[in-house]
Simulated assay, not measured.
Amino acid sequence: MENVQNLDDVVVVLVRARNPNNIGAVARAMHDFGFRHLRVVNDYAVPFETARSAVDASAVLDGAKTFAGVAEAVADCTLVVGTTAVGERALQHPVYALADAGERIGREMAGQGRVALLFGSEKTGLSNDELSHCHWLLTIPMQEHEGVRHPSMNLGQAVAVCLYELVRGVEFRGDAGSDAATAGEVERLTALFAEMLEETGYTKRHPANCDEAQIRRLVVRMGLKADDVPVWMGVLRQVLWKVRGRGEGAE
């Protein structure tokens, strides 16, 4: 890694992590590999003071931020990558093995803003709604064992392995401005898209296609640039204006 300051382009987001020791292990791994931005999504206060496994990582824990939802936690990120053990789940995203994912992050994020790595709860991983915020997923290849349906790592171990892969094989460069849409912009466009579908009556005719997570995945797959967002927002607002009867007689 030529420029350690570019590690600030990476944030680790823990979604519904409940074990303070696991959170501490994550903070320690982040400290050891030079990452410092930890975000926790939970519906209750996380007892950071009990994360005893965070040896020498107090700065990471002190700087950790808590959020009520994934959308808020990744709002300033231009690339959101989820983690999964795959198993038998029907996934609606491209999935890359960790080594390939590390190279892909390097290519997509060179001078392109901030990347969020999402890790789900220790027991259930990321939900479909949480996954809908992701552009694509990564998985850590593991040895299959007889009698174990879905092998998976401890949360702290998984974070450590992923961060090591980034440090080992990815060069983050900060020599260009960001031109990819942030997750916050994607979320605002998703909300406007949903509003347009409701106003045009599409949601009544095709309710199976209008789940919020489905709409978000559709917008994410568009791969929008920052300059695209105001154009699409303007188009959708014009549709709403017309549908609501304010554009009658307009050319």
Rank of each mutant, 00 (worst) to 15 (best):
Leu98His: 06
Asp100Val: 06
Gly174Tyr: 04
Tyr164Gln: 10
Ala75His: 12
Asp129Asn: 11
Thr124Asp: 13
Thr182Lys: 09
Leu118Tyr: 05
Met153Thr: 05
Asp100Glu: 14
Cys77Thr: 15
Gly174Arg: 08
Ala99Lys: 12
Asp179Tyr: 10
Ala54Arg: 03
Ala160Tyr: 05
Ala99Met: 05
Glu122Arg: 11
Lys65Cys: 01
Glu103His: 09
Tyr96Pro: 04
Ala90Met: 01
Arg89Cys: 01
Ala59Thr: 13
Val161Asp: 07
Glu144Tyr: 14
Ser132Ile: 07
Ala181Cys: 13
Pro151Asp: 06
Arg149Tyr: 00
Glu108Ala: 09
Gly102Pro: 05
Leu138Glu: 00
Leu118Cys: 08
Val86Cys: 03
Pro141Ser: 02
His133Tyr: 15
Ala71Trp: 12
Ala54Thr: 11
Ser58Pro: 00
Ala85Asp: 09
Cys77His: 06
His133Glu: 12
Gln112Asn: 03
Phe67Ser: 02
Ala99Arg: 12
Val115Ile: 06
Gln143Phe: 05
Phe119Glu: 05
Asp100Lys: 10
Trp136Phe: 13
Leu91Pro: 00
Glu146Pro: 00
Ala71Pro: 01
Leu61Glu: 03
Gly147Tyr: 02
His133Leu: 04
Val95Thr: 12
Leu118Ile: 06
Asp179Ile: 15
Gln143Tyr: 07
His133Ser: 11
Glu130Ala: 13
Arg168Ile: 04
Gln112Trp: 03
Arg104Asn: 04
Ser178Asp: 10
Cys134Gly: 02
Arg149Lys: 14
Leu155Ala: 05
Asp179Met: 13
Ala97Trp: 10
Gln92Val: 09
Asp129Ile: 14
Ala160Leu: 14
Gly113Trp: 03
Ala73Arg: 10
Ser178Leu: 11
Gly106Asn: 02
Ala116Thr: 13
Ala73Asp: 11
Pro94Lys: 11
Ser152Trp: 01
Thr182Tyr: 07
Thr124Lys: 13
Asn128Arg: 12
Phe119Asn: 07
Glu108Lys: 09
Leu166Phe: 08
Thr139Arg: 04
Cys134Ile: 10
Glu72Trp: 06
Ala110Leu: 00
Gly169Leu: 02
Thr139Asp: 03
Thr83Ala: 08
Gln92Asp: 10
Leu79Val: 14
Pro151Ala: 09
Leu98Gly: 09
Cys162Tyr: 01
Ser132Asp: 08
Tyr164Asn: 08
Thr66Tyr: 02
Ala181Tyr: 01
Asp56Cys: 06
Leu131Ile: 15
Gly63Phe: 09
Val95Pro: 09
His150Arg: 10
Leu138Gly: 12
Ala71Asn: 07
Asp175His: 07
Gly169Phe: 03
Ala75Leu: 06
Val161Arg: 08
Glu103Leu: 08
Asp179Glu: 13
Gln112Phe: 03
Ala59Val: 09
Glu165Leu: 01
Asn154Cys: 06
Phe67Ile: 13
Leu118Met: 05
Val70Ile: 14
Leu61Gly: 14
Asp179Val: 15
Gly113His: 06
Tyr96Val: 12
Val81Ser: 02
Leu163Gly: 02
Gln143Met: 14
Asp76Gly: 04
Val170Pro: 03
Pro141Ala: 07
Thr78Glu: 10
Ser178Thr: 15
Gly169Met: 00
Ala59His: 11
Glu146Val: 11
Leu79Gly: 12
Arg173Pro: 00
Gln143Ala: 12
Gly106Leu: 11
Met142Thr: 15
Ala73Ile: 10
Leu166Ala: 02
Gly177Met: 13
Arg104Tyr: 06
Asp179His: 15
Thr66Glu: 14
Val55Ala: 13
Lys123Ser: 12
Val161Gly: 04
Leu117Tyr: 01
Arg149Cys: 01
His145Pro: 01
His135Asn: 10
Ala101Gln: 07
